[in-house]
Amino acid sequence: MKLKGKVWKFGDNVNTDEILAARYLITTDPIEMGSHLMEDIRPGFPGEINTGDIIVAGENFGCGSSREHAPLAIKGAGIAAVVATNFARIFYRNAFNMGLPIFESAAAVQAFNEGEEIEIDISSGRIRNLTTGKICHVQPIPIFMQDLIDAGGLIKYLAKQRD
């Protein structure tokens, strides 16, 4: 499976308050959450996103609160995946549990710029920059995490275990 989209670049330590401010934690609707994505650090961002675009960010992406509203807002805004140098741990587990594809690649973060078109080949772990031709690889994930993805998230994984 391949994901193809335009890069939106963010820095280090993007926290969950920045991803979705707490004043919007009064809904469980991902589309509504998505309409406020990154509002305090990049006003108007949701309106610029084309469905399938990809966020590329630095270290410790998603630090701070445990709000699963953060990955839900990213998904709800039409972002297909997040590539970062690394992720804060609660955000990391939330993304796998609820089904937002995320990838760790310090090289990609270094080499890719905003506006470039990239393609992530999920099965081979290869990211190709279609604008510059540069190719990077993502950190392999533990087998358990792959099982979560294959099942379609934690709840479906547990249902499968029960059967």
Binding site: R67, R93, M98
Partner: peptide
């Protein structure tokens, strides 16, 4: 440790959680 809502839902069902 802090987790997200899906982990809480799973815990309410099974009484378990995964940990690295």
């Amino acid at each position: 440790t802090g987790v997200g809502s899906t982990d809480l839902a799973a815990a309410m069902i099974s009484g378990e959680a995964w940990f690295r």
